[in-house]
Simulated assay, not measured.
Amino acid sequence: MKRWPLAAGAVVLVLGLVTGGAWMTLTPDHRTTFLVDASESPDFGEVADAVGAAASNMSADDSLALRRFGGTCASPDTSELVTPGTGQAAEIGDEARAIKPSGSATLLSGVLAAIDDFARTYPFRGSATNRVVVIARGGADACGKSADEVRTIVGKHTARAGVKIDFRFVGHRLAADQVKVLNEIAAATDARKPLLTKTSDELVTTMREISVPADLVAKEVKTAPCDGVTPETLAAAHPLGADVRYFDVKCQQDKFVLAKANTTTGQYDNLLVTFELQGDTWKYQSSGTSLPCGSIPQDVWQQWEMLCEFEAVVCRDGEAKVTDLDGVGCPTAIDIADRYRAAISAQQAQGQGLFWGSGEWSCVWPYEDGYSHAATPLKCTRTTDNKAVRLGDYQ
């Protein structure tokens, strides 16, 4: 009979060792929740694609989850579409693309629910980092709570969760008033200032960068492509002559390089040369005293404090033709063109000039010298930099 307590004690010890071993084995180093604004918007596909790209860029050992938000202030709708787990980047992308956007932005309800997800013992939290990556698209939050109210509510939920959560916010195509609200909510979570994007390419790049855990980002920075750009590597990629030297090398986004070349530095007739990283190789793009914009984004030219010569690009041909006149990018050009046409169809444009505005865009059916009004195409202009998009063509 005395053997029973010993046997029971042995069983308890074995179960404890097994449970402890499982806990250590199953606990991920990093756990990340993608919190997606699923409110009504015409370009939600960009958000879904960016989430899928970010998830596929992360380690298969990272625990990933997906949560959506969007609804009404009276009935905020937020749900966990993919519960935390490793090896499910593909599922994150598929579920994000399957979302049908609806309702208004209810970001705060989504943030609170994401915090509460980490309050549970299981699924296991990350032993190194626990992160929520937020994409705000249809607005920031339509429910109008003050900054103090937001901070108080977020603080209560965070204390209840009992774990440090690193929030990262991205605002995509937001107006100035929406950015203000997003900044307030980010501040309430003690997050860094939200990153803002205007094109699908910018969104994908930003999501990939902020989703990777900080310790891995630090390792990547040490071997970033820009670190390896020297006058010698450019000379090997595009030789200019025995006496010509590259100097004043400027690299942006680990993908684009602008350099000057001449026999002697400091001359007024320096040759400007651009390169773009393709795969693992720097490829020559163009050279001259003035340069075409080419595939280099406008924000890169601005960082270089340079102007480029843009050639109008037909982003979409046919009856719904869209032409990028000044380099806003085809995704942006098509987006504003389609929204303007939809506004005209809904009789939201005003007067004979079909005046209509949305955020930083102002659209009109203009009068132009040498053309009748009927023969003049529609036009949208971005008020922040006066760059334009043409809808249709001259008749």
Rank of each mutant, 00 (worst) to 15 (best):
367 Y>L: 14
121 T>F: 13
307 L>E: 14
27 T>S: 12
285 Q>P: 02
390 R>A: 14
73 C>F: 02
279 G>P: 06
187 A>M: 04
298 Q>R: 14
337 A>F: 08
57 N>G: 15
105 A>G: 04
353 G>V: 10
309 E>K: 04
338 D>W: 02
128 A>Y: 08
324 D>R: 01
120 R>L: 14
196 L>K: 04
316 R>F: 09
163 V>P: 05
211 S>F: 06
393 D>N: 13
32 T>A: 09
359 G>M: 05
68 R>P: 02
9 G>R: 01
259 A>I: 02
79 S>Q: 14
152 T>C: 04
30 H>M: 03
149 E>M: 04
210 I>R: 09
23 W>A: 13
29 D>G: 13
254 D>M: 07
267 Q>D: 15
287 S>D: 13
134 V>M: 01
34 F>W: 00
32 T>W: 03
121 T>L: 14
106 T>C: 06
112 L>Y: 03
22 A>C: 11
201 D>C: 06
264 T>V: 15
146 S>Q: 00
338 D>V: 06
46 E>K: 10
354 L>D: 10
4 W>T: 12
27 T>D: 01
88 Q>G: 08
117 D>E: 15
102 S>C: 04
298 Q>F: 02
203 L>V: 08
357 G>Q: 14
129 T>W: 00
344 I>Q: 12
254 D>L: 11
85 G>Q: 07
74 A>K: 10
160 R>L: 13
213 P>V: 01
116 D>F: 02
328 V>S: 03
5 P>Q: 02
147 A>Q: 12
140 A>C: 03
85 G>M: 10
124 F>D: 08
61 D>I: 05
206 T>V: 14
238 H>Q: 11
125 R>G: 05
385 D>H: 00
68 R>T: 10
60 A>P: 12
118 F>H: 00
19 T>P: 08
388 A>H: 03
55 A>L: 04
55 A>H: 04
132 V>K: 02
35 L>E: 02
252 Q>R: 12
98 A>S: 12
91 E>A: 07
236 A>Y: 06
